[in-house]
Amino acid sequence: MSTGNGGRALKFHIFKYDPHKEGDKPRMQTFEVEEAPGMTIFIALNQIRQNQDPALQFDFVCRAGICGSCGMVINGRPDLACRTLTSKFKKPEITLLPLPAFDLIGDLSVNTGKFNREVSERVQTWIHNEEAEKTDVTRLEERMDPDLADEIYELDRCIECGCCISACATKRMRDDFLGAMGMMKVARFHLDSRDKRTDEDWYHVIGNDTGVFGCMSLMGCEDHCPKNLPHQAQIAFLRRRMVGAAKD
């Protein structure tokens, strides 16, 4: 998509390491790319792979900011690479690192899928409702207050990109911390009238220092969530509910 109009000469400093290659060492490598109008990091990385380094590893799927595949640390902040315009940076230097706190596959590619499935299993991110299991799908669906449906969707918008996990100091210190993403899922199912789990049930999932009580409120999750989800409000809400559950 280069226009040949002589855009800025961008310098990409990219983390390179192939853990499956014997003797390979982590290092930074610099690539130069001519900036074009509307250039995103998605476009730039593909150009680098095609023209300069065919071994360069990174992940993109939707390239539209909705699938959560391309989280990486961009000039020091976790964010979605596909929707980050290079023009956003005043200096023509862009440093890219893989998201920390996940297994590294290679270069900028990390295994978020494995982590996310574990969180889903831990929180049991599905409706717990014995009656719903017996739903007769030929009959009218169970009614739901329209406002409640909208509110659930607000919390259901997480795309599991991992930015909150990488931005979380607690998570970086203790691997068993659930993290904001898991907490948001708890909040989402806690709010859902179809899910019959009680505060006491939830207490067993998040009522300790690997859950809500481990959060130090540094708000890295809130600051870096690409979907602007209300992490802190939800964690604070859950914390109060869990205190309540412990008292009862």
Binding site: W126, I127, N129, A132, E133, T135, V137, T138, R139, E141, E142, R143, M144, D145, P146, A149, D150, I152, Y153, D156, F189, D192, R194, D195
Partner: peptide
């Protein structure tokens, strides 16, 4: 199709509702 959507309702999709 109506059965599919109602099944998904019981599986947690927060469909927008009639007000």
């Amino acid at each position: 199709a109506p059965k599919a959507i109602r099944e998904l309702t019981s599986w947690g999709v927060p469909w927008s509702r009639v007000r």
